[in-house]
Structure formats: structure tokens, C-alpha cells
Design a protein around this nucleic acid. Sequence first.
RNA 1: GCCGCGUUCGUCUAAGGGCUAGGACACCACCCUUUCACGGUGGUGAUACGGGUUCGAAUCCCGUACGCGGUACCA
Length: 510
Amino acid sequence: MAKQVRVRFAPSPTGGLHLGGVRTVLYNYLFAKQQGGSFIVRIEDTDQSRFVPGAEEYIFDTLEWCGLQPDESSRHGGAYGPYRQSERKESYRSYAEQLIQKGFAYYAFDTAEELDAMRNRLRTAENPSPQYDHTVRGQMRNSLTLPENEVADLLASGTPHVIRIKMPEDETVRFHDLIRGEVSFDTSLVDDKVLLKADGMPTYHLAVVVDDHLMEISHAFRGEEWLPSAPVHVLLWRQLFGEEAMPQWAHLPLILGPNGKLSKRDGAKYGFPVFAMNWKDPKSGEVTEGFRERGFLPEAFINMLAILGWNDGTEQEVFSLDALIAKFSIEKVHKGGAKFDFDKAKWFNHEWIKRLPASGYRDSVHQLFSQQGLEIQDQTYFEKVLDLVKDRCTLLGDFWDQSQFFFKAPKNIDLTPIKAKWNEDKVAFFHSFSKALRSISDWTPASLEQLFKQLAEQSAIKPGEVQLPLRLMLVGGKFGPPVFDIATLLGKEETAARIEAALEEMKDMR
RNA sequence: GCCGCGUUCGUCUAAGGGCUAGGACACCACCCUUUCACGGUGGUGAUACGGGUUCGAAUCCCGUACGCGGUACCA
């Protein structure tokens, strides 16, 4: 009887969700969907001091934008709630006490000062960070060293204390990692981690094991930074629930910045986003830019993240979410960390802009245009314009530069490229062209071009010589899609009007 | 320091004993295009180092170097 696949992602609400976090959700999500299992999001807010208001909402908003909706979460509810660890607080203590009874944990009454003193006393050049482990626990104030009645008194009088795991002295903990294979640790080198804090909240170590058990998690994927504490979790599983029921682990490689683990600072320093969406720290008021606001499509963002650390063994790089679900395999996730490359990220966005129909991002661009003070009246026209210019757009913001002239005549025309060769013949040509436009019956780029060339030849002008001027008249500069495509979309009246207006403005040139 | 995990073009990666180590981004050149792009063709460019095992190693083993992570009553 196989356990149903149930994966979870457990962010801590201490700030924005960075690339590594979103990728962890993504891989969890892909795996769950592929296996027909469920995907739940649990909030790890056991550290009350670092809790940032609004961060939880931000996390769910991010997941929503990315299209990675959890089946169960503190936002949507479900069968395994509550999904906020602070609301599960009461259940953890009994597990910790159960461990003490079995001799796998103990009470520790050491104050912060006593811990500092121990560390200062033991600190040497060879041992810069002394641990609370089997070598020192015999000298500390805990239920291993204190007489039983004294421990009982301390407990009864409500003395602040924590519960620590009692690491075995000479064991090798082995476990299988879906990505790395067999991993092993010598327990005598692992410290006695705190399981339950003085405020009654569990640490991550206890909480993750208890919650994964209670929520019947079958697979636990998390960042590589958790690998060193994995032996603690494996031991806890053995002692509490039996190793057979333990989820399968997979430790995902880190996403690196230009130097080391990608940080918020890297984004500011090198000019690229590290969060999916804008994040405003409520305390400092500092805003960290997001990919969404930078002009990324969620499809591209997800695609780029998936590829940063995984591929299906072929040369395919562009995947939709559905394709990712179909092709993903946790075994093919890479072992080594990957350095984030913003150029490649932009390439993915460009690809998705080209591939998606304009309707896929029309609303986002519309919003951008509104911010520029431009309101779109005709949706059909709008989409046609977007489809025409999309090849030239890497970020959504590029649509403004590439297409604003479709909605309003250019204010300033840059005449320098044609100034030298401008003459009366050309003026006459454009007058006759704008007049001839009105009589054209087949309003297509091809017939427009034909008319243009015909007229040019009649005026003994090379069509190439007047093509750039026409572009300048219509859009204001040396940019944009093919001129006749522009004119076609602009319509007869507007095209003619822009030519006449430009001619008027160019009167005193020459 | 100790522990752990890694290491193929500048970057992301393919090739899990066997053709001239393949692709993508970036860069360069040419073609297409009388704008800018898209597109097309080609180019520069990598198996960290040293030992083994083998007829044969990027691939397996050992060592070294380097990188990253962890070493909290943070997650």
C-alpha cells in the first residue's frame, strides 16, 4: 500500500520570496502534479522575532502570479491544517517530552550568558565556533548533569529552559537523497540542537519532522543549506515515528549570485531582480524590485527557474508549466549550484513574448500604458499592434517604446537622417502619395508598397530614398516594424494625416 | 578550524567507459532587411590538477586544489 504523494513547501515569512525559494516551490509543485499527489504550503513562523507582517500574503500572491496554487494552505485551508506553525504550537511539546522519556533528548537550563561563557572559554583558532555537543553537555546545566529532584524543582518553578536532542556519540547516520544518492554523517560531530525553545515554540528541526509526519508528507524537497542538519531530522524520525515512514529527501542545489549564494544585495548591486514580485519591507520601507514589475511574464519566469538546475536530457529549453509537469524528474536535478544569469532570463522572456498570442499579456501591457497616461480604446487594434511589434520586445516595458506611436502621432520627428538629401521632388512625391492613399481599394501592406513604388518611379525617385522619410513621418524615428505594416494598421486617414502634418513641419527644412 | 556538498566553454548545460566533447545565453563575422529587430549561416571558447583501474576515462576509485553551504533558543 503505497503512501499517497504529498509534498510541501514551507517558507518562513521573514521577507520576500527570492529565486531559490520560488524554484523550491516549483520543483515541489511539478513533482506533486506529475505524481497526481497534492501540494501543500505550510508557513514556518516559529521565530516570532523575525516575523514580518505582510510577508505571508506576499508569498501567496507570488505563488498565484506564478500559477503555482497549493491544494492546501493557510490561505485556502484543507484537511491537514492549521498550516501556520505558530497555530500548532501546543502539539510540539509533547513530542519533545516523548523524546526525553526515551532518552533521546534532555532539558537544558543554561542561560544565554552561560552559553556565551562556554563558547568563549572553548573558542580557539582551531575551533572558532564551539558547539553544545557530547563533549560539553556534561559540564552544562541540564537534566543530564543535575540531580533529578533539582530538575523537577526547576521545571516546577517555571525556570526558562529548552529541550535539546541528545546526539549519539559514535554512530553514522546514512540516508538516501533523491538527487545526491547516499549521504552520511558522523553523529559525534553533530551538536545537540535545540528542539523546543524557551518560549515553547519548536525550532525548525522539531517542527519539520512533526509536521511532515502529521501532514503525511511523502517527499521533502528543500535547499541544500539544509543538508548539514539532515542527520538531526533523520534521527528524530527514527526515534519518534520510525524511519520507514520518513519522507524521501531531496536537497536542491543553491542558486548563486555573482559571488556566492544569491542575495537581495546582489540584485541591487548588479541591477537585476531577485524576487518574483516587488517586495516592500514594512519596517524599513525599502522596496526590492520583482521580475513581474521588471516586465517578465510568469511563463518565462517559471521556465527560466526550472531550467536553472534541471533539464530533461534533451536540448529543449522552452517549456510551458504543463510541459514541465510532464517532463520533470527529481533525479535529473543537478547537484551543483547554478549561477544566475540575467541575460539568459531575459532571453526566456523574449521567447515567451514571441510565442504567446498578444492576448496572453495584453492586460499587463495595458496597465503599463495606463501608467504612461495612455488609455486603449480599441482592444482588437491593440492586440494587432502588440502582435506586430512583439519580435522586438524583450521585456513588457519595451512595448511602450515599440508601439506608442500607433496610438498617438509622434511629437518630435528626428529629421537628421534625411536632412541632407531632402528636396522639392520628394515633397511633391509625398503630397501625391498621401492623396493617392485615399483612392486605394485594397488596404494591405503589399498593395500599399506597390503604390508607393509605382509613384516613386513616376517621380523618378528611387523607392529606397523615400522609404526612410516615410518611416520618420509615421513614427518619428528610425525604429519600428516594416513601414507598410505600420501604415496599414494606422489606416488611410491617419497615415495621410501624419504625412501632411510632417510635410508641414518640414517646410522650412532644406 | 571542523563537517558536508560540489567542480565540463565567460554563464546555464548535454554526453552516466567508446565517433572531431553537443546545445543555449552572451560575444564576433557574414546573409536577409534601404529603420530597428526577428530569422539564417559560421566563428572564438570547456572536461580544475595529480595519480590509479581499463584495450579505452569528462564519465569509475584515491589524493590535492578551488568553490559553496553549515557550524544559533534563524529558518
